[in-house]
Simulated scan of single mutants.
Amino acid sequence: MPFLRVLFVLLIQLWVPRAEAGSRVAIVDRFFPASGPLATVQEQEMQRWMYGMLDLDDDQIKEPYYHGDLVRLIAAHPRLTFFLYPISSDRPPLDSIALNLREIRARLGRQPVDAVLLSWESSTLISAFEVPLHRSRAGHYLAQLEKWSETDGSWAPTLAIIRELEALVDAGVTVVTIAGNGGRGMVNTFSFARGVITVGAIEPELAHFVSDNALVDRREQAAYFARLLSAADGELLGYDLSGDLCADIPLARLSSYSQGARDLPLRPWPPLKGSSFAAPAAVKKILLAGLDPDSDSGVKRSGESTGDHCGRHAAP
């Protein structure tokens, strides 16, 4: 019996680190299919055209991937678990975001998360505050927003979101948001939130598009070029977005698949770009940096082929 007790303790010690090796991420965004009341077929098609981000097979029909689906794909890693909080289509997006953040915070006791990712923005002109911005004066900028809200109720949802972001930070959650895509003259007011990590683009070519100011904490890859992948025998697998030679978007998910997709573009245009897609890259780096590298054995690294969804070849 003592031997069995010792063996049991050893097994528990071996199992617990692996069980705790991963991190949990809540993503607030718009996912396919859109959340909200059931819509007619025509309304569903309209939503897909409005919210779809990619037409990889060039058939004039958007693939079933909305903004949040692509954010999750970029952040994806075997050691990260995602909880998706959809932005509803039946209320203003900022109101839905505030409600979701409140729900995440209310659930922390029974569904804890390590990070919250909000690839969304509520931006305005930097010149409305001061040029240039100063990180040390973020509290002053927030106070100015509060004054605006007293006479213009449209800022109330933004302030509600900022308060929820700060409450999550105070609860020990890593909160990541975006610099915004209005160019150098704009600022995402969510970056005024105390303790929030704001992510911009690392590519200098996007300086005219992605905001960059003193409140940007870090910069990551913000442009992603889809590439058609094939297996060694020439069988088409799907499209790789992240550059790891895995079919992030399998062939079967393309809108033209049921019609027998043929002559697929090797490198569809335009690319996916924006600080929305830099933020998930930052979340992945931040969380993986804090995990035990010794427990990474068997986990796929970039460029490795570990299953049917991965291939080492770009289609010829």
Rank of each mutant, 00 (worst) to 15 (best):
V173K: 03
D244H: 12
E166Y: 10
S297Y: 07
V113F: 01
P112G: 02
A252N: 03
V6G: 09
E150I: 09
Y239H: 15
D233M: 10
S258W: 10
L99T: 07
I74E: 01
G153M: 03
A247T: 08
A247R: 04
T151N: 08
L99W: 06
T151K: 09
V9K: 07
E45I: 02
P17A: 03
M46N: 14
D55E: 12
L287C: 01
A223H: 08
R135L: 07
P271V: 12
S127R: 07
Y239L: 13
L94Y: 01
Q42Y: 12
A279N: 11
L7Q: 09
G52I: 06
R253M: 12
D240V: 10
S127K: 03
D296P: 02
L80C: 02
S305Y: 07
R227V: 13
R79Q: 09
D95N: 06
R227A: 14
P17N: 10
I286D: 01
D294A: 11
I61D: 00
W120M: 05
E235M: 15
P316N: 10
R72V: 04
E43F: 08
R253V: 00
L215H: 05
L101M: 04
L117S: 06
P204H: 05
R5M: 11
H140Y: 10
A106T: 03
A282W: 11
Y239A: 11
D69G: 02
P316E: 07
S305W: 08
S302D: 11
